[in-house]
Design a protein around this nucleic acid. Structure first.
Length: 210
DNA sequence: AGAACGATCGACT
DNA sequence: GTCGATCGTTCTA
């Protein structure tokens, strides 16, 4: 149990989106500069049947080529002209699909991520809360842009791990958590697919966000 | 070549 | 709750 392998991503996308909750996303910027966050919010997108997916109906364009690279690759694209979204390609090769990473909890490199998000502005509780709770924020904090599109998640630049202990970091105290499923965000145009319950969040047993 | 649009965010009422 | 920013991608012609 350590770094997630090709086989982790080579399966059903909804299953993978749920399984990614609680895993540790690691961004290696330099040999000695490591950023990490615990995945707490994901969404599944499946080209075969999902009008919200960029590769709906197996559509091949310059942008969607990344979704055809096969499981275990990063799909990163520009959205609204100024933000980026990070996804993990899933399903067996030939099935374009991915999991969008929508939210993290900081695990390592919090000061660096805060600087990437807010520059020199002083930290506040509102900024701490807003550090990683959105797909555009995740990419800004981790320094991910289209330059990283298509990279292999089993390499060193960007990877996912089972636990902080795999990185020599302390385990946080384990409070009980459960998975909450709901409708995906920002896809009102996607007809019947807009109601698919393919958004997953980790929440505390008391109902408060984890 | 031109136009429409978007898997978001932050500022504001 | 609303709204504008901003530009690459995609489609139409």
């Amino acid at each position: 149990m350590a770094r997630l392998s090709y086989d982790f991503y080579n399966r059903d996308t909804v299953e993978t989106a749920r399984a990614l909750l609680g895993k540790i996303l690691v961004r290696r910027l330099e040999p000695s500069l490591l950023l990490a966050g615990r995945i707490v919010e994901t969404e599944a997108y499946i080209g075969r049947c999902d009008k919200a997916c960029h590769a709906y109906g197996y559509r091949r364009t310059v942008r969607t080529e990344t979704l055809f690279l096969g499981p275990g690759h990063a799909y990163i694209y520009l959205i609204y002209g100024m933000y980026h979204c990070l996804n993990f390609v899933t399903e067996p090769e030939g099935e374009p699909a991915a999991v969008l990473i929508r939210g993290l909890e900081p695990v390592a490199g919090e000061a660096y991520m805060a600087r990437a998000r807010y520059g020199e502005k002083p930290m506040t509780t509102a900024r701490r809360r807003g550090l990683l709770n959105g797909p555009g924020k995740v990419c800004q904090a981790l320094g991910l842009t289209r330059r990283e599109n298509g990279i292999d998640l089993t390499g060193d630049v960007l990877s996912v791990w089972d636990s902080p202990a795999d990185l020599g970091l302390p385990e946080p105290p384990g409070v009980p958590e459960r998975i909450c499923a709901g409708k995906r965000i920002g896809i009102e145009y996607a007809e019947e697919a807009r109601d698919f319950p393919w958004r997953f969040t980790l929440v505390g047993e008391d109902g408060k966000g984890a």
